[in-house]
């Protein structure tokens, strides 16, 4: 694979732009997390969040969450105009504490999932999803 100087410059610029993607609504994210956890610490293990690295269209992005032993899982999109995505509460007949859905992402951003465990503890996972801006589609 060979790069011309121009290619390398352009790609370097792309990398710089990616690293500067603004993360909006951080106050709203903090408020939503606070409301869900009451400010408790969150473990980095115990919850799994599956999301594509690159979404072909931000309008329909498949995600899945799995947190064995959780009573509820909240999902937030940190870079959307409003961060709320979905909250799953698992009842006595839930076969697992896992679920999948399809979500909207306004741009490249972090998707955050927080699980509330049966013992009152919390766990958090996050995943960056790059949202491409299409050409024509098809």
């Amino acid at each position: 694979m060979e790069f011309t100087r121009r290619d390398t410059l352009a790609m370097g610029l792309g990398a710089a732009v990616l690293s500067m993607v603004p993360f909006r609504a951080s106050a709203a994210v903090d408020a939503a997390v606070e409301a869900f956890t009451g400010g408790a610490d969150m473990a980095a293990t115990g919850i799994e969040l599956t999301a594509p690295e690159i979404a072909e269209n931000g309008n329909t992005v498949p995600i899945a969450v799995n947190a064995p032993g959780a009573t509820a899982i909240m999902v937030l999109a940190a870079g959307n105009p409003t961060p709320g995505v979905v909250t799953f509460k698992f009842g006595p007949l839930a076969g697992s504490q896992s679920a999948s859905t399809r979500i909207r992402l306004a741009g490249t951003q972090d998707v955050v999932a927080i699980a509330k465990m049966a013992d009152g503890s919390f766990a958090r996972a996050a995943s960056t999803v790059k949202v491409t801006i299409g050409g024509c589609g098809g």
Binding site: N59, T60, V61, A64, A77, N80, T82, P83, G84, V85, V86, T87, F88, K89, F90, G91, P92, L93, A94, G95, S96, S98, A99, S100, T101, R102, I103, R104, L105
Partner: peptide, 28 residues
């Protein structure tokens, strides 16, 4: 719900895509 007992109770916000889709597991 199954026979009156809850399986899952979901709160949706506006970031859920058009034609909402959910997949989950239930004990029968």
């Amino acid at each position: 719900d199954f026979n009156g007992q809850n399986v899952v109770d979901v709160e949706l916000f506006s970031a859920i895509s058009t034609n909402p889709y959910f997949e989950f597991e239930a004990t029968i």
